Simulated assay, not measured.
Amino acid sequence: MVVIVPLVALFLLYQIPMWRDDARLDDFHERVLAIPLPPETRSAGDSEAEFGKNSGGGGDYCHYEIRLPLSTGLSAGEIGAYYRKAAITGVEIAADVRLDWGEDTADGRAVVVKFSDISSSDWDWRCT
């Protein structure tokens, strides 16, 4: 029993930050999916949620990103304005919104709307 208590404590010390950050990513993903699609726009596949070390800047930060593939008849300005106006809350602050444009299709133009945010790693080893 004396050996088990420290092992359980180490396990929890290791896992709790991961569980917290996974829950943050899930909540962020749900907020993005709750936004109605803009006019002349439809889903072009499943959304993706990604978590990991922030590759830009200094320090130990976790990066959260949700990618929403769409097909739209809207211009870059129109779809960008739509999602920026939605002011999606990321993990800590308003999410950054970027658009990656693809090729024109019969259904419209392909675009991936990317929502991202960062937070301090707070002991999550995946961000260090």
Rank of each mutant, 00 (worst) to 15 (best):
G56D: 10
W125F: 10
S47P: 01
A86T: 05
S121F: 04
R20K: 07
A76G: 08
S55G: 15
D124E: 03
P6S: 11
P69V: 06
V32G: 02
L68W: 08
D26L: 08
A94H: 02
S55P: 02
I35N: 10
Q15W: 08
A34K: 09
I66W: 01
D100V: 15
E30W: 02
G80Y: 11
R24N: 12
A9F: 13
V91G: 01
I35F: 02
A34P: 00
E78V: 11
I4P: 00
H29D: 15
D122E: 02
H29W: 09
D124K: 04
D104Y: 07
D122K: 06
L7A: 08
V113K: 05
P17W: 04
G52V: 05
S55Q: 15
R42Y: 05
G77N: 14
D21R: 11
Q15R: 08
V3H: 09
C62T: 00
A110W: 05
K114L: 15
I66T: 11
A106K: 06
A44H: 06
G102P: 01
V112S: 12
F115E: 06
E78Q: 15
T128R: 09
G80T: 03
G58L: 09
R31T: 13
I79N: 10
I4L: 15
C127Q: 03
T89G: 09
Y64M: 03
M18S: 02
M1W: 09
L74K: 12
A76D: 13
L12Y: 04
L99T: 03
V111G: 07
L99A: 03
E50H: 05
Y64R: 01
P38T: 04
V3E: 13
D124H: 00
P17F: 03
P39R: 14
D100R: 14
I4V: 13
A49C: 02
I4C: 14
A34S: 14
M1P: 06
R42M: 14
T89N: 05
P39G: 12
N54I: 06
E103C: 09
W101V: 06
G45V: 06
R42Q: 12
G58T: 15
A87Q: 10
S120K: 03
V91L: 05
L37S: 11
F51K: 05
A110H: 08
P17V: 07
E65L: 02
Y82Q: 11
R109A: 10
E40C: 09
I88Q: 02
V2C: 05
V2F: 13
D26G: 06
D46S: 15
A94S: 08
D100L: 15
L7C: 14
W101G: 06
A86H: 07
